[in-house]
Design a protein around this nucleic acid. Structure first.
Length: 566
DNA sequence: AGAGGTCGCGCC
DNA sequence: AGGGCGCGACCTCT
C-alpha cells in the first residue's frame, strides 16, 4: 500500500508537493502540483488507495471535501505525534526525547496553549519560529513532514508492542477524516421543528429581543412568590440574596438546593432556570448562528480531551440536550440510524482486565441487569452506581458502600482501576489499552504527591497532600477506562465508515458522541446500515481485544428524528 | 471595553 | 458523590 506525503513546496507558496515514500519512510517519486490542482491530483491517485500523510487533517481535508474528493485513509502527523510524544511505549524514542517543536504546537490559527514557565529566562521566551531560524544549519529540520514521519515510524518500530500503537495511530487518523467529513456533510436539522419546539416551551419570541412570553410569565411568578417585583433572576448573586431576603435557607442557586425547598417559589424557579438555559444555549440565536441550509456543522476536535475523547468547539455539539433532539430530522426518503454502545465503559474494563465474571454479566444486553442476575447486588440502580463508582472513584455514599461486594465479585476488574488510582497517587503515568498515556502532573501537583507520602510533615499538610493525591488518582483511574473506551469507539467508527462506503446511496456518518453514532441513510438501505453498525462493533472488539469473551452490546434504532431513538 | 474567573448545567 | 468536557451568563479586575 503506497504512502504519499502531502506538503507545502519549500519555496513556492501556491505549489504542493506529493512525495511518495516507502513503508519505512524513504522517499520515492515526487510530483509538484499547483494548489488549485490538488483535489484532482488526489482524486486521480485515490484509486491506488494510498495512505495520505499530512501535518494536519483539519488543514488539508476540508478543501478536498469541498471539491468533492474523499480519501480512504491518512496519517495525521500532529495527532500521531501527540500520542507518541507521551506514550510510555515510546518514551525512549528520539521523538519523545527531543525538545518540543512545531509538532507539539497547536495548529496555526488556534489559540496557543499557555504553558506555565518555570524559568523567567528571556532566552527561552523566543518564538518557535525565531528559535528555528537561529538553528537553521546545525539542527535537524524539525518541521519537515517527511522527517517527522520517519521519526514516528522509528518510534513505533522501537516500541515494545508496536501493533497496539499502529492500531491507535490508524484509528486516530481515520477519526480526523471522519470529523472533517461530518462537519462537511452536517447533521440534518429542521429549523421549523426547532422553532415550534422553542415556541411551545418558551412562548412567542418578542420581535425586539427580551424574554419570550412563557419565560416572562414564570419570572413574574417567581418575583411574586418572593415579594420582590424587581428581582433579576439571571444574576446568581441577586437571586441568592433575594431568596434569603424572603426568609429561605439556601446555600446556592443550584437546582439541587432549590429542589429541596418547601416554598411556592421552588417550582416556577426551577422551570424558569430550565427554560432560560434552553433559550441561551440552544434558542433562536443558536439556531441562527449554527444551522445553515438545514445542516448543523459543528467543529469536532479529535483528541480534544486528554483521554483521547473528542471535544467540539462551537455550537456545543457534544452537549445537544435531549429536549431539542426532535429537530434532528432525516431528509425526505432518508432515515437516521442511531446506535449507542450499552454500558461501554464497564464492558471495556471487563475486556482490559480479563475479568471473565464481569464479561459473563455482559452477556446480558444490559450489563447492569447481568450484575443483578449474578446476585452481586439487589437492584439495577445499585449495579449501575457501584460500577460507575469503581470507574470514577467513589469514596463516600451508597456507591462506596457497594464497593466491597463488587470487589469480591470482580476482583480483576476492580484491581485494574485500583492499580491505576494508586499509580496516579504516586505521580506515575498510566496508559490506555492501545498506549495513550496520561499527562504528568504539573510541578505543583507533583510536589503535593511527594508530600503525601512524606514523613515528619505537619499532619494538616499531609492531609491536604493526600487529598490532592486521591484527586489525581481518581483522574488516572478514570483515564485508563475512559481512554480505552474512546479507542474502542474510534475503531468502531472507522470500521463502520469502511463498511458504509460499500453500501449504495451514500449513507454517511453525521454524529458521534463518545459511545454513540448516527448515520444519515437512504431509507431502502437503513437496515443494511444497522447491520453494518453491529458488524463494526464486533470488529472493534476483535481489533482491540482479540478473542476476549466480552460482548459489546448495542442499542440500534432506525428513526425519522433523533428524539425517537432510545 | 475586554480578558479571565466562577457558577451552573447540558452531554457522556 | 466520584471522572471527562463546552458554553453562556454574570462578575471582577484591568
Amino acid at each position: 500500500m503506497p504512502l504519499t506525503v502531502v506538503l507545502d513546496h519549500p519555496a513556492l507558496s501556491d505549489v504542493v508537493v506529493l512525495q511518495d515514500v516507502t513503508d519505512d519512510g524513504q522517499p520515492l517519486a515526487r510530483a509538484d502540483v499547483p494548489k488549485a490542482g490538488l483535489p484532482a491530483a488526489v482524486a486521480a491517485r485515490e484509486a491506488e488507495r494510498p495512505r495520505w500523510v499530512w501535518d494536519d487533517t483539519a488543514r488539508w481535508y476540508p478543501p478536498l471535501l469541498a471539491a468533492g474528493v474523499r480519501v480512504e485513509r491518512c496519517h495525521d502527523l500532529r495527532l500521531c505525534h501527540a500520542i507518541l510524544r507521551r506514550s510510555v511505549l515510546t518514551q525512549d524514542s528520539e521523538l519523545a526525547q527531543s525538545a518540543p517543536g512545531r509538532w507539539d504546537e497547536p495548529p496555526p490559527g488556534e489559540p496557543k496553549a499557555v504553558e506555565v514557565s518555570l524559568f523567567d529566562d528571556p532566552r527561552l521566551a523566543s518564538t518557535p519560529a525565531a528559535a528555528h531560524a537561529a538553528t537553521d544549519e546545525d539542527a535537524p529540520d524539525d518541521s519537515d513532514p517527511l522527517a517527522e514521519l520517519q521519526r514516528q515510524f522509528a518510534a513505533v518500530a522501537g516500541a515494545d508492542d508496536p501493533g497496539r500503537l499502529r492500531l491507535l495511530l490508524a484509528a486516530e487518523s481515520t477519526g480526523a477524516l471522519i470529523a472533517a467529513e461530518m462537519r462537511h456533510d452536517g447533521l440534518p436539522w429542521d429549523v421549523a421543528v426547532h422553532h415550534e419546539l422553542l415556541t411551545r416551551e418558551l412562548g412567542t419570541r418578542p420581535a425586539g429581543g427580551g424574554r419570550p412570553s412563557r419565560l416572562e410569565a414564570l419570572a413574574a411568578e417567581v418575583r411574586t412568590a418572593l415579594s420582590q417585583p424587581a428581582l433579576n433572576l439571571d444574576s446568581q448573586q441577586d437571586l441568592l440574596r433575594g431568596m434569603r431576603a424572603a426568609g429561605l435557607d439556601v446555600e446556592s442557586t443550584r437546582k439541587w438546593d432549590i429542589q429541596a425547598l418547601d416554598h411556592p417559589v421552588a417550582a416556577p424557579l426551577l422551570e424558569y432556570k430550565k427554560l432560560a438555559r434552553l433559550l441561551s444555549a440552544n434558542g433562536w440565536a443558536w439556531m441562527e448562528q449554527w444551522v445553515r441550509d438545514g445542516r448543523f456543522r459543528p467543529d469536532y476536535v479529535p483528541a480534544g480531551v486528554v483521554t483521547g475523547r473528542w471535544a467540539s468547539s462551537g455550537g456545543g455539539a457534544l452537549q445537544l440536550p435531549a429536549s431539542i433532539r426532535g429537530a434532528v430530522r432525516a431528509d425526505p426518503g432518508w432515515r437516521l440510524v442511531v446506535a449507542d454502545a450499552a454500558q461501554l465503559e464497564p464492558r471495556v474494563l471487563a475486556a482490559m482486565s480479563g475479568d471473565d465474571a464481569m464479561a459473563a454479566a455482559g452477556r446480558h444486553a444490559d450489563l447492569y441487569q447481568g450484575v443483578v442476575d449474578a446476585g452481586i447486588v439487589e437492584t439495577r440502580e445499585q449495579a449501575k452506581y457501584a460500577m460507575l463508582g469503581a470507574i470514577y472513584g467513589a469514596t463516600t455514599g451508597a456507591s462506596a458502600m457497594l464497593m466491597p461486594r463488587l470487589t469480591r465479585a470482580y476482583p480483576r476488574a476492580v484491581g485494574l482501576v485500583e492499580a491505576a488510582a494508586r499509580a496516579g497517587e504516586r505521580g506515575e503515568p498510566v496508559s490506555t489499552w492501545l498506549g495513550r498515556t496520561s499527562p504528568a502532573p504539573d510541578a505543583a501537583r507533583m510536589a503535593e504527591l511527594r508530600a503525601a507520602s512524606a514523613e515528619g510533615a505537619e499532619p494538616a499538610d499531609v492531609r491536604a497532600a493526600r487529598q490532592q493525591a486521591r484527586t489525581w488518582g481518581r483522574f488516572t483511574r478514570n483515564f485508563v477506562v475512559q481512554g480505552t473506551a474512546a479507542e474502542w469507539a474510534l475503531c468502531w467508527m472507522a470500521a463502520l465508515r469502511r463498511r458504509l462506503r460499500a453500501i449504495d446511496g451514500r449513507p454517511h456518518l453525521v454524529f458521534f458522541l463518545h459511545d454513540e453514532v448516527m448515520v444519515h441513510s437512504p431509507e431502502p438501505v437503513a437496515d443494511e446500515v444497522a447491520a453494518a453498525i453491529r458488524d463494526a462493533a464486533v470488529e472493534a472488539g476483535r481489533l482491540l481485544f482479540g478473542d476476549s469473551p466480552v460482548d459489546f452490546a448495542l442499542q440500534v434504532a432506525v428513526v425519522h428524528s433523533y428524539d425517537q431513538a432510545k
